[in-house]
Design a protein around this nucleic acid. Structure first.
Lengths: 239, 239
DNA sequence: AAGTGGTCTAGACCACACG
DNA sequence: GTGTGGTCTAGACCACTTC
């Protein structure tokens, strides 16, 4: 057994919720009962329950107990953030990635500021169009510091760069900042996408940080207005 | 002293980061050192550090230590989600709220489904336009179950309903689900907002749940395209 | 080998909900 | 009062980084 005990318990409880063994709107066993069931300490049970809570599967109420939330009514996965692209993949809609540009470039002023690189650094610039159900509706512009990603090929780009980075290069992505706003469509958008007359674009900027807190990727994802969708599930913080 | 020990430590460390006593890109004292400094147990220190980490102020690295992240480079507050409206308030831009409608209505099919109410329930329907720097750019449509919010006045609506609910009614909001997408502007949008020719609208749907996991508010916030902005800071989850 | 953060334990006391 | 979840403690062992 190599998995954490609290993650094992988390996954076990999650399975029971998904299978309906633990029913929505009903109470979970108390923490002390779970201590007995899983033969562990209370803090470990609490770690598992807090994870379930943070991910929106249960609600803990002081003095009463923990309630299983109704997961089925979410039309999207509950935890985290979901883009149209991810949804299309989940729905198994036919999709395709077209690599428009793949270059090693000198950073311009904007990139120098946002990627924290200097004139001496080189930066991978990747532009890809995402075609879903026959329409090119998303334009992804990615920029990586060459220091972190030495080589990159068209094949990797057609697949998932993200998987390549995590699985092959073993770089660990730890957190990201997102900005969403609407912008006028550029000539580049028009060139690579099927804009269908829409002259505005939803822009999702993404700043990705590694485990050691260094910024290594800047991404701009440009979505046609009518095909943009974003879901967030937020637990209110302390205070 | 009534505040939690770990929250006290969290706030103290946060203050030191903000004041530059703990500098960006430098290491925090180790957990064992903090145990000494604050005369507490390691788990308590870890609770405080985990909060700082979740809120994006530090980065913990196994075997090495915790690094203070550079907060100053975020043009928006780091933790959680920030809308244009909140930003305008932070920037102290002149803003005004116009209550367009305030009614007790029977729920239609859509509301019955999303607010989990029946024909017997009554629902508060509040429509407000938000004017910022002289332009009406956001239309907020709120729906509350009358069961939770018995009375509501124009004055409360012109102020913050949210504050009224938390401070006066003592209802505790625990989590919310957001959906963002772009829709065609309706006649209602046109009637209440200064659309300036934009015929699309960014829609932010908000489902708000109380402490006991009951859904009590459904909100739709409709933003003029050019004035929409949304920031998210997401830590990657386990797994 | 020494120091770091990550996990886990077995207790303790508290605040809250409910009958 | 009993049971619940929330906080806190003082230890322990582990995996990882650095020397």
């Amino acid at each position: 057994m190599r998995e954490n005990k609290y993650l094992t318990i988390y996954n076990d409880l999650l399975l029971k919720i998904r299978q309906g063994i633990l029913k929505a709107n009903e109470k979970l066993p108390s923490e002390n009962e779970l201590v007995q069931q899983y033969q562990t300490s209370r803090e470990t049970i609490r770690k598992a329950l807090n994870l379930l809570s943070e991910h929106g599967y249960i609600q803990k109420i002081k003095g009463k107990g923990s309630i299983v939330l109704d997961v089925s009514k979410y039309d999207f996965p509950v935890s985290g953030l979901v883009s149209f692209k991810e949804l299309a993949q989940k729905m198994k809609k036919p999709s395709k990635t077209i690599v428009c540009e793949l270059d090693l470039v000198k950073p311009d002023e904007y990139l120098k500021k946002h990627l924290h690189v200097t004139n001496k650094d080189e930066v991978w610039k990747v532009i890809r169009a995402r075609e879903i159900e026959g329409e090119k509706i998303i334009l992804d512009k990615d920029f990586f510091n060459k220091k972190f990603v030495p080589s990159l090929t068209r094949e990797i780009c057609e697949d998932s760069i993200y998987e390549y980075i995590e699985n092959e290069l073993k770089l660990k992505i730890s957190f990201a900042k997102k900005e969403i706003f609407v912008d006028k469509a550029t000539d580049e958008d028009d060139q690579y996408l099927d804009l269908e007359g829409y002259n505005h674009i939803v822009v999702v900027k993404n700043f990705v940080y590694l485990d050691d807190a260094s910024l290594f990727q800047y991404t701009e994802s440009r979505h046609r207005l009518d095909k943009f969708r974003f879901v967030d599930f937020a637990r209110r913080s302390h205070q």
